[in-house]
Design a binder for these strands. Structure first.
Lengths: 194, 194
DNA sequence: TCTTGACCCTCACGTTGCGATAGGCTTCAC
DNA sequence: GTGAAGCCTATCGCAACGTGAGGGTCAAGA
């Protein structure tokens, strides 16, 4: 009693190509081949495939599935813990991104139908705000004690105020801000600090 | 006033290789080259890179960024909506997976330190339960009105009861269940229904 | 018997966003 | 003038298959 790839694929709800792939990487090698070279899967193979699918449904990669099966299922608790940690990180990340998008959408909606170009500028400003006002990025560029430190702080303060006032991105003031900022950064980079 | 790749990379917080890549795919082609072939980025290039990074921080792929920039930022609202939808789906998926893992962990913890092999069996059973007791999968295999329909229903009921009783996966009863299930599925697939 | 259709086989390239070499110029500072 | 950075192009690698291309195999019907 054995299955061809097509049968097994239908049975397991995946494609023939996927089974070919599993075979190629050694994850599920059919126990037999017909004389003409057809893959023949036995009942044990089917069971193994179920195990594979079970682990995949827990979010493991094919490689991870392979090692878990190789170790005969020891270390499953560790895998679960790891998966949970990754999932939590993922969820947190996605949630943060989501709230950022909501915030941006609101901001764009308030500016009553601006130029298409304005949207881009807003996104750009928005992302700068996000990027350079985060402590991490500030630390990266603002080596404490270096010459321009106070200028940076002033600039950041001004920029933050501008964002809060919802300064039009095309305005003279906004351009001036961008200019100040560009000049500072260029000095950093040209001076090759870091 | 222009930047070399290295400078721009440091400035933007990404690698030289990434900028090479952006160049290769036409996302950010430096406006100039030095005589010896060095990439030289102008201020406008830098601004474009900021736009790119802004859009990337919203979760867009490089291709999406490219089309948004090509259309001069029109369709940003649509992109936002789409991103939000994808994020919601992602969050939902991750959350579901998370709760599944928690459930499994609990189940494994309750079985006081079983064989390693038992873990695998439990995962397998668990995943079957998950898979074949979901309405979607049942529909796929259980063509209504077909001959074995009632047998399937009985089997599913028994399996569900077994899961609830936390039947040991190695027990005779569990094996019998697995057998019944295998036989039914094989009839389906061999009979080439679908 | 021949043929048709539904299978099966083995390559092998495409996807995403770069990382990681390899082999070889250029430029700058000492 | 020479060594250390920094630049160039080109290519392989990664995850998990999708999607053909080109060609055998197998059961059934005309």
């Amino acid at each position: 009693m054995s299955f061809t790839v097509g049968h097994l694929a239908k049975l397991a709800g995946l494609t023939v190509r996927a089974l070919h792939h599993y075979d190629a990487i050694g994850l599920l090698v059919p126990s037999k081949r017909s004389e003409s070279g057809y893959r023949l899967y036995t009942q044990d193979d089917v069971l193994q495939l179920y195990r594979i699918q079970g682990l995949r449904r827990l979010g493991l990669s094919l490689t991870e599935v392979q090692t878990v099966l190789a170790r005969d299922g020891a270390m499953i608790p560790e895998m679960i813990a790891q998966q949970l940690a990754e999932l939590d990180a993922q969820i947190e990340h996605a949630t943060a991104l989501r709230s950022r998008l909501l915030q941006l959408r609101e901001r764009l909606a308030q500016g009553n139908e601006p130029d298409p170009g304005d949207w881009l500028a807003t996104v750009e400003l928005f992302s700068h705000y996000d990027k350079y006002c985060s402590p991490e990025e500030l630390n990266r560029l603002m080596v404490p004690g270096s010459e321009g430190e106070d200028k940076w702080k002033a600039l950041v303060t001004d920029a933050r105020a501008a964002m809060d006032r919802k300064l039009a991105p095309q305005s003279v003031e906004a351009r001036a801000l961008g200019d100040r900022w560009t000049r500072l950064v260029m000095r950093r980079v040209d001076g090759d600090i870091d």
